[in-house]
Design a protein around this nucleic acid. Structure first.
Lengths: 257, 257
DNA sequence: TCTTTAATTATCATTAAATGATAAATTTTA
DNA sequence: TAAAATTTATCATTTAATGATAATTAAAGA
C-alpha cells in the first residue's frame, strides 16, 4: 500500500452499508498496524476528508461536499446536461426520472438527475451511485458507443450466466447501435422501464448517456415515439452544449495575459 | 510537501474560479518539478479524483460525486435535517431559501438546502460553498454557540475593520445567545434577510445552524413571530433526530455478531 | 505528409518520508 | 477510582518519493 492508494483504500471502506469505522476496524480490515492507521486517519481528519464521530468512530468528512460542488461547476457533461433534465421531464408524456450517467471504472454512475414531481417509485439511479454496466437502458446507451478492445475489457469485467447470454447481449448492442437508442424493461428495478440515448464527445473523452425511466404501468405503446423524439433531440442538444463548453474553455485558456 | 497534503494541495487548486489546470501550471504554482507532478496526477487520475480534459488540462474527477453520496447518507446533520427543509419552506409565510450549515475549518459551509419553488433571487448559500464566518444569520447561529478559547481562535482568523467592530460583533453574539436566534439584513447578499437558530449535539460534535433566508422586499414585521416559531420548532426537531440517529448508530455497532 | 514542439512516461541515484514496534499519555468505561 | 480502550509520541529500520535527465509519445505547424 503506497502513494495515493494508501489513502483511497481507507476512504473506500466507507460506503452506504458501512458508514463509520474505528481505527482498529480499519487496521484489521487492511491488515495494517493501528499506529500506522492512526497517523493516516489523523492526516485525513485535518484535511476534512474524514471526521470523527461518537464512540471512536470515523466517517467521511465534509471536504467531499465542497469538491462535489466544484465538480458540478466544472464537469462538462453535468454543466451541459443538468439544465435540460427538468425540461425533458416536463415534455415526457408520463411521469419520469431523467438521468445523465457516465462510465466510472468498470461501472456506470449517475451524475445528474431530475424526477418529475409526482413520480412515486424509487429508481436505483441516484447521483453518485454505481450501477451495473450491462443492465438497464442507461448503461446500455453508454457501452453501445464503445467498441473493439475497450468493449472487450469492459465486458470481461462482468459476469454473465452463460456464453449465450454474453453473445446475445453483444448482438443486442449492435441492434441498439443501429436503432440509435436503448430500451429495457425491469432489468434494474422491477416495474420500471428505461429509454436511453448515447452522449459522447471524442475531444473531451465523454462517454455517457441520457435516459428517461418510467413506471411500466404508466407506459402505453403510443408514448414511445414521443419519448424517443424527446431523448434524441435533448441528447443532441446536450452534445451541442458540451461542444460549446469545450470551445469556451479553449478560448479562456488561450486568452493573452 | 508530504503525506496527504501532497495530494490535497493539488486538489485545492481546483475551484470555481479555476476549474482546470495543466501539469506545468500546477508545477509552477506549487514550485515542484513537473516529473513529480505528473506522477502524482497520474495516481489521482487512476483513482478518479482527477480526470484529464481536452488540451492537456485536468479537472476534478467523478470520485467526489460518489463520496458525496455516501456523505449525504452518513452525515447525521444532513440525515436528520434534510427531510425537514421542504416542510420548513412550506410553513414559512413568504418564499424562502432554507439552509443547514456547519463549520468547515475557519469557514461556514452549507451542507443542505431547499428553495421554495417561486423564490427568485440567488443566495450565496449553496451546498458545498464556503461562506464567511462572521456575516449572515446562518453563520452567526453557528458561532454564537461557541465560547472560550475556540471562539477566540475562530474570531481571530477573521479580519475586522476595527477593534470596535470586533467588540460590537461579540456583544451582538451575547444578545443573540439570549434571544435564541439570529437575524441579519443584507450582510451576505443585498436585498436578502436571514433568520437562524443553532443546531448542536455535543456527543457528535455537531456545531451547526438552521436558517431561512427571505427577500427583504417580501418581509413584513408581522412575519417574524411565525418565522421564529418555525425555525425554533424545526431546529429542536432536527436536534431530536440527530440524537435518534446517534442512538441508532450506537445500537448498530453494539449488536452482537 | 513530414517536422517540430509539447506532453507524458521511464529511469535511477539520492533524499526523504512512511512504517510499525513499543512506550507514554489521554480518554472512556466499569 | 481503577481498568481498559483509545490516541499520541518516539525512533531505528524499511520503503517510497523525489527530481534531474533521457526516452517516448502525442499534438501542432509547415
Amino acid at each position: 500500500m503506497s502513494g495515493f492508494q494508501r489513502y483511497k483504500k481507507i476512504l473506500d471502506l466507507f460506503s452506504e452499508d458501512r458508514i463509520s469505522w474505528t481505527v482498529s476496524e480499519i487496521s484489521n480490515e487492511l491488515k495494517t498496524p493501528s499506529s500506522t492507521i492512526y497517523r493516516i486517519v489523523r492526516e485525513m481528519v485535518v484535511a476534512e476528508f474524514l471526521e470523527s464521530a461518537a464512540g471512536s468512530y470515523f466517517r467521511l468528512g465534509p471536504a467531499f461536499i465542497k469538491y462535489n460542488r466544484t465538480i458540478n461547476l466544472s464537469d462538462p457533461l453535468i454543466r451541459a446536461g443538468q439544465p435540460f433534465l427538468e425540461k425533458l421531464a416536463s415534455e415526457n408524456p408520463i411521469v419520469s426520472v431523467n438521468v445523465l450517467a457516465r462510465l466510472y471504472g468498470n461501472k456506470v454512475m449517475c451524475v445528474a438527475d431530475y424526477k418529475s414531481p409526482f413520480f412515486k417509485n424509487n429508481t436505483s439511479y441516484q447521483k453518485g451511485k454505481l450501477m451495473p454496466l450491462i443492465y438497464g437502458a442507461t448503461s446500455r446507451a453508454i457501452i453501445m458507443q464503445i467498441t473493439g478492445r475497450r468493449l472487450d475489457e469492459l465486458i470481461n469485467s462482468e459476469k454473465f450466466f452463460s456464453v449465450d447470454e454474453k453473445n446475445s447481449f453483444l448482438e443486442g448492442l449492435k441492434v441498439d447501435r443501429k436503432k440509435g437508442y436503448c430500451f429495457t424493461q425491469g432489468q434494474v428495478d422491477k416495474g420500471l422501464i428505461g429509454f436511453a440515448v448515447s452522449i459522447s464527445n471524442k475531444k473531451l473523452g465523454i462517454e455517457a448517456s441520457l435516459s428517461s425511466i418510467f413506471n411500466s404501468s404508466d407506459f402505453l405503446l403510443e408514448h414511445e415515439p414521443i419519448i424517443y423524439a424527446n431523448l434524441t433531440s435533448y441528447g443532441l442538444l446536450v452534445e451541442k452544449y458540451i461542444n460549446e463548453i469545450f470551445n469556451d474553455i479553449q478560448n479562456y485558456h488561450h486568452k493573452p495575459n
